[in-house]
């Protein structure tokens, strides 16, 4: 990095060493830091604590990738992005990857030229109503006023759902989740709808969470996953298999507590391959043998990350549900490490 000076008042960070489109992985290694795009703040998924340290479910994935590539889970520059700036930030190279609860959709994958490398959280749009409303199904919401964030897919899903069920509703447009909480609590709307994880987090902040219920209907599929730029497959593979390593680690029972013990060698060849004591998987990725071990060690396996940030012991209190391992009836299914 060469600093040049402009008008003395303001320094411009110079060009990164190799301007030619070197692989993202080389850029990251040369820089010594991973630029990871996160939200500007979403409960449980990404938020800075009082010391300015980013924490959360999405943040943990950034740290795991940084640990795998650079050997240090703190070698991450978290770049807060909004819903409007996230895609240009990734496309322009300002960030190396986005871990920003972004729904994997056809047009984002194909038309916007991004590559979703997997799914780290299966979400879906749900409804929250006050218990006093006496509603037990979303289909009974005929004529209800609904608080809905404008300009999101939730708005479209809602219209589809009500039209398909031939019932009417009155939308109350709101801009942010904080505003929605206030409006809903003030009784400006009967129903609040957004992603189920967001509803759970919102309900947890209420003074009497028991007075509000989440309706059983989930009206959309929202597979949230990390994404990278189209075309850089080496880098996409690194992020994809870091995520898979976390998921497989849970399936195989590798935790941050027993990982050192296990990396001494076990009878399970797949564990050995993940942890790098057998095979050359790391080398195939362009990393060293212990990449996955470091990735798992930094925040634990998928289950540990989940439990720590959004699981049932946290104020957000999300159940695993769809995000359980396939062996437990969920959708998490990592391809084998072979």
């Amino acid at each position: 990095m060469k600093k040049s000076v402009f008008l003395g008042a303001l320094t411009v960070a110079g060009m990164a060493a190799g301007v030619a489109a070197a692989g993202t992985m080389d850029d990251v290694k040369a820089r010594g830091k991973l630029n990871c795009g996160v939200t500007t703040g979403l409960v449980g998924f990404a938020a800075p604590d009082s010391n300015g340290e980013w924490k959360g479910f999405d943040v943990a994935l950034c740290r795991a990738v940084a640990a795998a590539v650079l050997g240090d889970g703190n070698a991450v520059e978290f770049v807060p992005t909004t819903g409007k700036t996230r895609f240009t930030a990734l496309a322009s190279g300002e960030v190396d990857m986005l871990a920003r609860n972004t729904t994997w959709t056809f047009s984002r994958d194909v038309d916007l030229k991004f590559e979703f490398v997997g799914v780290n959280y299966y979400d879906g749009q749900g409804f929250m109503v006050p218990k006093s409303l006496g509603v037990s199904s979303a289909k009974e919401l005929d004529g209800a006023t609904v608080c809905i964030q404008t300009g999101t897919t939730t708005e479209l899903n809602l219209a589809d759902f009500f039209r398909a069920n031939n019932i009417s509703y009155e939308p109350v447009p709101i801009e942010t989740n904080a505003e929605a909480q206030q409006q809903y609590l003030a009784g400006a709307c009967d129903v609040y709808t957004t992603d189920a994880s967001g509803l759970a987090a919102t309900r947890a902040t209420f003074e009497n969470p028991g007075d509000h219920v989440l309706l059983p209907e989930i009206i959309s599929k929202e597979p949230l996953g990390p994404l990278v730029r189209h075309g850089d497959h080496e880098w996409g593979d690194v992020v994809r298999w870091t995520l898979n390593a976390l998921i497989s680690a849970e399936e195989m029972g590798i935790t941050s507590a027993n990982i050192d013990e296990m990396s001494a060698g076990t009878n399970n060849p797949e564990i050995n391959r993940i942890l790098g004591t057998e095979g050359t998987l790391g080398e195939m990725l362009g990393l060293d043998a212990e990449w996955a071990k470091r990735a798992i060690k930094v925040g634990g396996n998928y289950g540990e990350v989940f439990a720590q940030n959004i699981g049932e012991s946290t104020p957000i209190g999300l159940a695993r549900g769809l995000n359980a391992q396939w062996t437990d009836g969920g959708l998490l299914y990592s391809p084998p490490f072979r």
Partner: peptide, 26 residues
């Protein structure tokens, strides 16, 4: 500037609310 993802006081207020401890403080 909070709209383009810089954490000025308003952007930070959103980030602070994203802390599970303070979600709901407005």
């Amino acid at each position: 500037v909070s709209i383009i993802g810089l954490l000025d006081p308003l952007g930070l207020s959103n980030a602070i609310r994203a802390d599970a401890n303070w979600n709901g403080v407005v």
